[in-house]
Nucleic acid binder design. Structure first.
Lengths: 355, 355
DNA sequence: GGCGCAAGTGTGAGCGCTCACACACCGACG
DNA sequence: CGTCGGTGTGTGAGCGCTCACACTTGCGCC
């Protein structure tokens, strides 16, 4: 005589387990298992009964037991550079959501520095956790190389890790963004465009340099050595002071919005108006970009979508090992024109007639 | 005759398991288990031998099996509001690091909206994953209430969730920050300070309002109704336009730096100089704050440390259930004075004698 | 009417560990 | 010199599931 409604629990730790559900529903535990994994071969009426029993007991399958018995953890490891940077942080959000939507759980690790050593250590920890796949977001270039060279026990996908080859089948091409930024400035009449680059240990930074250089060369404009920043407003300010001192500078493409912030302050302090004297363009479209003084022209990238697609590839790889030629995917950021860029105004030559 | 050096593997899925290590080391699996969990009662020489065997085989214990057998997942769930906001994001980093350092693994869930329903759903999912404790960062106030009311099967800690009571033993008092911000402005001679508040469904926003109001009342300064923003630069801009139109406004305290960004643009566009006509103070000290035009005076909070302390409390609660009176912890942010705040300058009265 | 066959259901074993013991072995004690 | 109590080690069982089967039914078929 089953005391229906009573919350019995057989499990050592109090929670109801599969046999409890089975007993309540009057079936074997195997049938319960079939229902949980919604496998075929269970009569609808039976399924309903099992479902009801599960609900009544508040039963939830033990992930540990499932994973032990099945050999599958249904967990994806995400390793990312944990920073204040808009790009990686946003990509992470997209990736996490996509993974979870696919029914996997996520183990995230945010590295303060995504170099070779920490990459390897992180992957090591992920492996120990028995993840079924690893997604690396924005590793430094040498870290990406190390990851690729390592024989991975699980599918590994590197997002924005550089090189032409790719681990898990996609290759995002993002030179287009920088190219468009420069094109925009050139179209505005600027003789050339200076570049405030990100740290070259990141592929995203290299990509921007390549796009910038290509656009310049295409247009036959002079190419000055890019200045080096570290993504921060601080570095944008420091290099901005250098740029501000050069009267020939009329347009600057910063590799991200944060550096553009610092750059604009340096320009402002030097008495050079934006966009009157110097046009500035950023990259990323951080939420504040539209509210800077002046509102910043920039490029918006769909990080969420990028993350989503990367996840799709990774999961495909997990679920159907083998297969899949690397598919090149072109990421074309949108140019958001605001007030920090304007027509080229030749500066009045000292000692000569203006204009 | 053991073929030492050979990578044998008994496990169904290829990886070496405990008995493999035991065989190689010439002990029983139980001894291997003792070594892994570094329990006492193993001779040093034996321990060494086991360790060597583990290394040779590249053995890593199966978390699923451990957790199934021990009933402990050694996993902490973190639920947070996943946004571009500096505070929660930074706190999350501190929390994650602290949890991992304590030898637990982390399951993070970033909610786009941390309201009642999503909070409950997230906790539900965490519970299904069998986490041993849950840490909620910056839930909306009603979500915090719901979490507290729910009978939690595991220790639950709410960070910045408001109310006076606390779930897991700490109570962070952060009214001091807002108080100091206002005090600073008052000391500069401003007759009063307007407040650009964050969304009141967040305790952090309410806290700032309380601190602001208290400081004003203490000083006997007039208290105007705070304006409502939503943490974004966008909303700061919108409300900033209102403020800019009021010639009596000489000092504004924004509940976060992002809103201050928008506010400053609105002021600028209205031709009101910062800090000449209006002083602005923010909150959080985002990395860009020092590079805005003008560099923003703000309050810096040690989010990392806050996270660390919260984790310590949670883990204490997990490891020694019961015990622990709520300990009030006072968070006193540092006032970072930059260029967006200045002495009060009475505006020239139209038609009357100046000053 | 006995056969095959599908659909639905149950049984045994085992995933890789930890727990609670049981068992050796050693020196010290009366 | 037998017994006690430690210290180190091994044994049995079982955690809550999934896997690979084996087994029932009911049905249409020759």
């Amino acid at each position: 005589m089953p005391e229906s409604g009573a919350r019995r629990a057989t499990g050592r730790h109090g929670a109801p387990v599969m046999v409890d559900v089975a007993a309540l529903a009057g079936v074997s535990y195997q049938t319960v298992s079939r229902v949980i994994n919604d496998q075929p071969g269970v009569r609808d009426s039976t399924r309903e009964r099992v479902l009801a029993a599960m609900r009544e007991l508040g039963y939830r399958p033990s992930p540990a037991a499932r994973s032990l018995a099945s050999g599958r953890s249904r967990m994806i490891g995400i390793v990312t550079i944990g920073s204040d940077l808009y790009g990686p942080a946003t990509t992470l959000r997209g990736v996490e959501t996509a993974v979870r939507d696919a029914g996997y759980s996520v183990s995230t690790e945010s590295l303060s520095r995504f170099d070779r050593a920490s990459a390897l250590a992180a992957v090591e920890r992920m492996t120990a956790q028995r993840v079924e796949g690893i997604l690396a977001i924005d590793p430094e270039v040498d870290a990406a190389t190390a990851l690729r060279e390592m024989s991975p026990t699980v599918p590994l996908m590197v997002l924005r890790g550089g090189l032409d080859a790719v681990t898990a089948g996609v290759q995002f091409d993002s030179t287009a963004g920088a190219h468009n930024a420069v094109r925009h400035l050139l179209d505005l009449g600027h003789p050339t465009v200076r570049h405030l680059a990100g740290p070259q240990r990141f592929e995203a930074a290299r990509t921007r340099v390549r796009g910038w250089r290509a656009a310049l060369e295409e247009a036959g404009a002079p190419v000055h050595e890019p200045l080096q920043g570290d993504w921060s407003a601080r570095s944008g300010y420091a290099t901005g002071q250098v740029l501000a001192a050069d009267p020939d500078v009329s347009a600057v493409f910063a590799a991200n919005d944060q550096m553009a912030v610092g750059l604009m302050l340096a320009l402002h302090e030097a008495g050079r108006a934006v966009p009157g004297d110097v046009s500035v363009i950023g990259f990323d479209d951080i939420p504040e970009a539209a509210y800077l003084i002046p509102p910043l022209t920039t490029l918006r990238q769909d990080f969420i979508d990028e993350g989503r697609r990367a996840v799709a590839m990774l999961l495909a790889q997990i679920e159907h090992p083998g297969a899949a030629e690397p598919i090149p995917v072109r990421m074309v950021p949108d140019l958001i024109v605001r007030s920090s860029t304007g027509r080229y105004m030749p500066r009045p030559t000292t000692g000569g007639p203006p204009r």
